[in-house]
């Protein structure tokens, strides 16, 4: 150590809140570019504007879930209950619509159901002190059961066109699901990188004990993450029933796995304290691209599953091998 006390002021605080495109995000982007390039050479018309928009639209539901999942994972938790949360929200929204409830009110109710489901998860994690994996494993079954009991196991059919137009329409030639998810992504990015709650999420996931000693409101921070995850699961279900015109109580089966995969590919650490909104969106698009490309190549579903699994593992191995250099 020297005795110099010189403090070069020009070197300070260069990256706060600026659009920080980290090395890790750059890696995810390169992965996406490689995958797109491979399909572009193998599949004629893969790079057409229509197909690219298709990919984004197909990725939108998973991206929506993965954004909430990313916040939960950053806080050091996990949310396995997003699929059933979406199902409960979908069947209730659909029933309300069929009963003639005004569309904005039905949407609001659906989102509130998701928020409530997330709130219950958050309270069980933060105040009761149960492990997030176990809590959301329990509510995964519970919420699914509620959706099945509520509908008697039958799909709710005949969702009005006015509603479908909102979630399955287009604005300036871009499908609304893409626009909705883009807005949500920007909001999540702002929340994570520009607000105290975002920093609290990072701190609680990075070192909960230190965050506590530093006065961070631990419980409130965790509950916020689960509430957002629940709300976004509900939003994803609205997009889906808008597209299908029906709400099935079994919808959203295994959604949690795709959402976790997208977050992990995007750089979220399941240990908490680490994750990126940009990365998660890219991760969701990578998964969507794989599915789209393989389908266009007429690859059987079984092999698509295989390819998706391998992509996740390869992504994690690259992540592991390059960690620490960024």
């Amino acid at each position: 150590m020297t005795t110099s006390v010189a403090a070069p002021a020009d070197k300070t605080a260069s990256g706060f809140g600026r659009f920080s495109f980290s090395l890790r995000d750059a890696g995810t982007l390169i992965g996406l570019v490689v995958i797109v390039a491979v399909f572009a050479t193998l599949v004629p018309g893969f790079l057409s504007e229509r197909n690219l928009i298709n990919i984004l639209q197909q990725s939108s539901i998973n991206a929506c879930l993965a954004l909430g999942m990313t916040l939960v994972i950053i806080s050091g938790g996990i949310d396995l209950s997003v699929g059933p949360t979406a199902a409960v929200s979908a069947v209730i929204t659909a029933t309300l619509l069929l009963a003639g409830t005004p569309i904005p009110l039905a949407i609001l109710a659906g989102l509130c159901i998701g928020v409530l489901c997330g709130f219950i998860n958050g309270v069980l994690v933060a105040y009761v002190g149960l492990q997030p994996f176990i809590v959301t494993l329990g509510t995964l079954s519970t919420y699914r059961a509620l959706a099945l009991i509520y509908t008697g196991g039958n799909p709710v059919l005949g969702i009005p066109p006015g509603f479908r137009q909102i979630f399955n329409g287009a604005l300036f030639g871009i499908p609304t699901p893409i626009l909705i998810v883009a807005i949500v992504a920007v909001a999540a990015w702002v929340l994570l990188t520009k607000t105290p709650i975002g920093e609290y999420l990072m701190a609680v996931g990075g070192n909960e004990e230190a965050a506590y000693v530093a006065g961070v409101p631990i419980a409130r921070t965790k509950i916020t993450a689960y509430v957002i995850s629940g709300g976004l699961a509900a939003l994803a279900s609205l997009i889906l029933i808008g597209r299908l015109g029906a709400a099935e109580p079994i919808l959203g089966n295994l959604w949690e796995l795709d959402a976790i995969a997208a977050a992990a590919i995007g750089g979220a650490s399941l240990m908490g304290g680490k994750g990126s909104i940009v990365g998660t969106i890219l991760g969701a698009i990578i998964l969507g691209t794989m599915r789209n490309g393989l389908t266009l190549m007429n690859v059987q579903a079984f092999y698509q599953l295989l390819a998706t699994g391998l992509i996740i593992l390869v992504a994690m191995m690259i992540d592991r091998a390059t960690r620490g250099r960024g």
């Binding site: 605080a13 920093e199 990072m202 530093a214 006065g215």
Partner: peptide, 19 residues
């Protein structure tokens, strides 16, 4: 264990108690 959030910047660690 009780002081730092290891992956965050030194400035944000400084600010953590008074965000």
């Amino acid at each position: 264990r009780d002081g730092i959030v290891p992956g965050r910047s030194v400035a944000l660690n400084m600010a953590l108690a008074s965000l």
